[in-house]
Computed example of a mutant assay.
Amino acid sequence: MKDMKDMKNHSENQDSSGFVKIPDVAGDVILEIRYYSTFNFIGDRIDGYTQPTALLTKEAAAALKAASDEAINQGYRLKIYDAYRPQRAVDHFVRWAKDLEDQRMKKVFYPEVPKEKLFTLGFIAEHSGHSRGSTVDLTLFDMSRGCDVDMGGYFDFFGDISHYDHPDLTDAQRAGRALLRDIMLHAGFEPYENEWWHFTLANEPYPNTYFDLRVE
């Protein structure tokens, strides 16, 4: 969840001219927008997600299209959990993290982590690189088997199994994570070691700007 890059120089912004809807550029991706649904670590729809779609900067969307094409050539499709994230959504995360009484989703998303430590352990922060518009959370869908690739852990799990190189992964799970990483690296994205699903465009166009557009 956490990304400290350029945090000192953040500014909220409402200019949508540099953004596109991912399906308009990469029509083969699958959208499973967790923050529009209630199946997420909070258990409610997250502020700022008014439609079950996903946005990215034009540059990041073009790179994602290249990644999608490569995935399809290898028999997979990209499944998107989240992309651009409004600052108001991050603010929602922060408010929730401070409410220690609300632990509805603990058994699913943070069973071994005390909620009061989510800030100090880096799972929740006041700003996210997602709000800069060029970060995406995703996995691979295996078209021949009709299911998601087994990655040995799932999106937004607050625990060590989410780290890319966790030692308890099977060979097949390591291979799944490696394939996703290779596809994204080849398209121009950089990984985040603590979250196997998290990638940011290497040359993101707005490295110092945190946007607050609604996802719609």
Rank of each mutant, 00 (worst) to 15 (best):
F109Y: 15
Y110P: 00
Y110W: 10
K115D: 09
E116D: 15
L118W: 02
F119K: 07
F119T: 10
T120H: 07
T120S: 15
F123Y: 15
A125F: 10
A125W: 00
A125E: 13
H127A: 06
H127E: 09
G129C: 07
H130Y: 13
G133S: 13
G133L: 11
V136N: 01
L140W: 01
S144W: 11
S144P: 07
R145T: 11
C147I: 09
D148M: 12
D148F: 14
D150S: 09
M151V: 04
G152N: 06
G152W: 05
Y154V: 03
F155E: 02
F155H: 09
D156F: 06
G159S: 13
G159H: 09
D160S: 07
D160K: 04
I161N: 05
I161C: 03
S162L: 01
H163M: 08
Y164P: 02
Y164Q: 12
D165L: 10
D165H: 13
D165I: 08
D165T: 09
D168E: 13
L169C: 07
D171S: 10
A175K: 15
G176R: 01
D182Y: 08
I183E: 06
M184F: 05
H186E: 14
G188Y: 02
E190P: 00
P191N: 13
E193H: 11
E193S: 13
H198W: 06
F199R: 02
T200I: 05
T200Y: 01
L201H: 05
A202C: 07
A202P: 03
E204Y: 02
P205A: 05
Y210M: 10
F211T: 01
F211N: 04
D212H: 10
R214W: 10
R214P: 05
